[in-house]
Structure formats: structure tokens, C-alpha cells
């Protein structure tokens, strides 16, 4: 496992790792959660996820964090780091 990046608070890093695991598990991706570049694009380039993936991620986020994703929050899915910031701000559990 790569060491967590020294940015933000430690809870932020924990959340980022949780989210990386959530993405890998809910989409059954063949990558280690720690290998996801926090600043790389999740959709399009990078992991190259599609719209069904977006639906699956939205469901997983809703179940685990009580955050309802909308297409207007698309910027939150730009990268793992953006998603972490969005969830940290809006989570209800």
C-alpha cells in the first residue's frame, strides 16, 4: 500500500481511502484502491468510467454517506480528491 499523501487532515485522508475502496468495490475494478491517483479523472480518461458506473457510485455514496449525487455535482466526480471534498462537506453519516 502506498502511504497516504500528506495533504489535508488525517480524517480527509481516511475518507479518501474509504472512497477509493468504495469505488473499487462497487465497480469491481481490478486496481488496488491505493493505486488510484487522487487527482486523476475518474470518468473519461483515468479510470474511464461510464454512466452506469456513475449510477452505481451514486447509490453506494447514498447508502454509506447519505449523500445524494446530482448531475449538477458532476464536478465532484472529477477526481477522487474532488469527491472526497464533496462528501466531507455533505455527508450526513
Amino acid at each position: 500500500m502506498a502511504p497516504p499523501l500528506e495533504t489535508g487532515s488525517s480524517t480527509q485522508n481516511e475518507l479518501e481511502q474509504d472512497l477509493a475502496r468504495l469505488i473499487v468495490e462497487s465497480l469491481r475494478l481490478e486496481v488496488l484502491p491505493a493505486s488510484i491517483d487522487p487527482s486523476a479523472a475518474l470518468f473519461g480518461e483515468g479510470l474511464g468510467l461510464d454512466s452506469i458506473d456513475m449510477l452505481e457510485i451514486a447509490l453506494a455514496l447514498s447508502k454509506r454517506y447519505g449523500v445524494e449525487l446530482r448531475s449538477e455535482n458532476r464536478a465532484a466526480l472529477a477526481s477522487l480528491r474532488a469527491l472526497t471534498a464533496h462528501i466531507a462537506q455533505h455527508r450526513t453519516r
Binding site: L27, R28, L29, E30, V31, G48, D50, I52
Partner: peptide, 21 residues
């Protein structure tokens, strides 16, 4: 696996990308 997926993505519709490979 990442290199294989990146190459495949150019050739097929992404819904058919293997999950997992």
C-alpha cells in the same frame, strides 16, 4: 491490467470492459 484496459477502451464500447479482468 491498466495498460490492457486503456488499449481496449479505444476498441470497444466501455460497457463491455471487463469487470474484473
Amino acid at each position: 491490467p491498466a495498460a490492457i484496459l486503456a488499449d481496449l477502451r479505444k476498441r470497444i464500447d466501455p460497457v463491455f470492459l471487463p469487470r474484473p479482468m
